[in-house]
Amino acid sequence: MSSPRRAPLSRERILRAAIKLADRQGLEALSMRKLATTLKVEAMSLYNHVANKDELLDGMVDTVIGEITLPTRDGDWKAALRARATSALAVMTVHPWAPMLILSRISAGPNMLGYIEATLATLREAGFTWFETDRAWNAMDNYIYAFTLQQQNFPVNPEEYASAAAGYLPMLPAHVYPYMHEMTARVADGSHDGTLDFSFGLELILDGLERLRSTRE
Rank of each mutant, 00 (worst) to 15 (best):
M1D: 12
S2A: 13
S3E: 13
R5S: 14
R6P: 15
A7N: 12
P8F: 00
R11W: 01
R13T: 09
R16A: 15
R16V: 14
I19K: 03
D23I: 08
G26Y: 12
M32A: 10
R33N: 13
R33T: 15
T38W: 02
T38M: 08
E42L: 01
A43W: 01
S45F: 00
S45H: 08
L46A: 00
Y47M: 03
N48R: 13
N48Y: 10
H49L: 00
N52I: 01
D54H: 15
G66V: 07
G66D: 05
T69G: 02
P71K: 03
D74C: 06
D74Y: 02
D76C: 02
A79P: 00
A80D: 04
T93L: 04
T93R: 14
A98T: 03
L101C: 06
I102F: 15
I102H: 11
S107A: 12
G109W: 05
P110M: 12
M112C: 10
I116D: 09
E117S: 14
A121V: 03
A121Q: 06
L123V: 04
E125Y: 04
E125I: 05
A126M: 09
A126L: 07
A126E: 04
T129D: 05
T129S: 15
W130Y: 10
E132Y: 02
E132S: 06
T133Q: 02
R135T: 09
A139K: 05
D141F: 13
N142A: 14
I144A: 02
N153P: 01
F154P: 02
F154L: 10
P158N: 09
E160L: 14
A162K: 07
A164D: 08
A165S: 14
A166P: 07
P170C: 09
P170K: 11
M171K: 13
M171C: 13
L172C: 10
V176K: 14
P178F: 14
P178T: 13
Y179W: 12
A185M: 14
R186P: 07
D193M: 07
T195N: 10
L196I: 06
L196C: 05
F200P: 03
G201V: 03
L209Q: 00
E210I: 05
E210K: 12
R213Q: 10
S214N: 13
T215L: 11
T215E: 13
R216H: 14
R216F: 06
R216A: 12
